[in-house]
């Protein structure tokens, strides 16, 4: 197999290198890629969508349909991870460990029924538990709100600077994952439960697809944000700009929820009990 691999790789690579001879030179402003379709975006994008960041304009408006399905891909990944890994309900034979906060004594409980939450002086700990680092926990607690604030900025400011729904959504998701890593998965899940992941994920995509569907109901084509002008009482160009913002929010929601959903399924192997 290794030998076959080397042969395939060498032949394919050689053929690909051979074809680079006819490529347009790298970073040539006169190459077809830079002269056919893209100048329209650069020169007209601002006038047609009122979004100075052309990448955002193309992403969420000119090629907004791609982006809808791109968000759907993330949603798909979330659903697939859940579908494959989630073990519904907790097995009755799991062994749980509780630690007495004041003394540090660990109690191992078999056949766990309804222990969690009922013991104020005890805290549930992971099987492979090491004492939590106070500095890390505190630093993360302080940082996470700022990370989330920055994420909101990235989503909202996608029109004017690099950023947008995906980037902001990823940062939002990462902030929660940071909480899960610095504390444990259960802490993160207490803040935002599994059902919330699942529903937020579909709601995010629904916001996007729904915006498109509203345009359709108003008699325009799917995702033609110009239709929103009637509802928002602005001119069609500004309506496009607002439409982009709405779908970016949807994307942000979907990406955030999907990332946390994937993380909690993959890291806990689907039992949502103990994570990394």
């Amino acid at each position: 197999m290794k030998f076959l691999g080397i042969i395939v790789v060498v032949i394919t690579g050689a053929l690909l290198v051979y074809t680079t001879g006819d490529f347009p030179s790298w970073s040539d402003p006169a190459s077809p890629a830079s002269t056919h379709v893209s100048p329209h975006y650069i020169e007209k994008g601002m006038h047609e969508t009122a979004a100075p960041n052309i990448v955002t304009a193309v992403l969420a408006d000119y090629r907004g349909f791609d982006t809808l399905f791109e968000t759907t891909v993330v949603f798909c990944a979330g659903v697939v991870c859940f579908f494959l890994l989630r073990i519904p309900g907790r097995s009755p034979f799991t062994e749980c460990q509780y630690r007495h906060k004041a003394t540090g004594i660990t109690v191992r409980v078999k056949h766990d029924r309804k222990m969690s939450g009922s013991f104020g002086e005890f805290e549930r700990i992971d099987t492979l538990w090491t004492p939590h680092d106070l500095i890390i926990q505190t630093a993360c607690r302080i940082l996470i709100p700022f990370i989330q604030l920055f994420a909101l900025y990235v989503i909202a400011h996608g029109h004017h600077s690099p950023g947008g729904g995906f980037q902001g959504g990823v940062i939002l998701g990462a902030s929660i994952i940071l909480l899960a890593i610095s504390h444990d998965l259960r802490t993160a899940l207490d803040r935002l439960g599994e059902k919330a992941h699942a529903i937020l994920c579909s709601v995010g995509v629904l916001v996007y697809a729904g915006t498109g569907a509203v345009c359709m109901v108003l008699g325009f084509n799917f995702l033609d944000y110009g239709a929103l002008a009637r509802i928002l009482h602005v001119d069609p160009v500004m309506a496009r700009s607002h439409g982009i913002l709405v779908v970016e929010v949807g994307v942000g929601l979907a990406v955030m929820a999907a990332l946390i959903w994937i993380y909690s399924n993959v890291s806990s192997r689907g039992n949502y009990d103990e994570g990394l």
């Binding site: 659903v79 699942a198 994920c201 579909s202 569907a213």
Partner: peptide, 24 residues
């Protein structure tokens, strides 16, 4: 005139609704 749109959008929306309905 909206058939090509409906063809894709309605299944997509219904998939999202199913995902929510699965929890409700």
């Amino acid at each position: 005139s909206q058939y090509p749109g409906l063809l894709i959008i309605v299944p997509l929306l219904s998939a999202l609704l199913i995902s929510v309905a699965g929890w409700v």
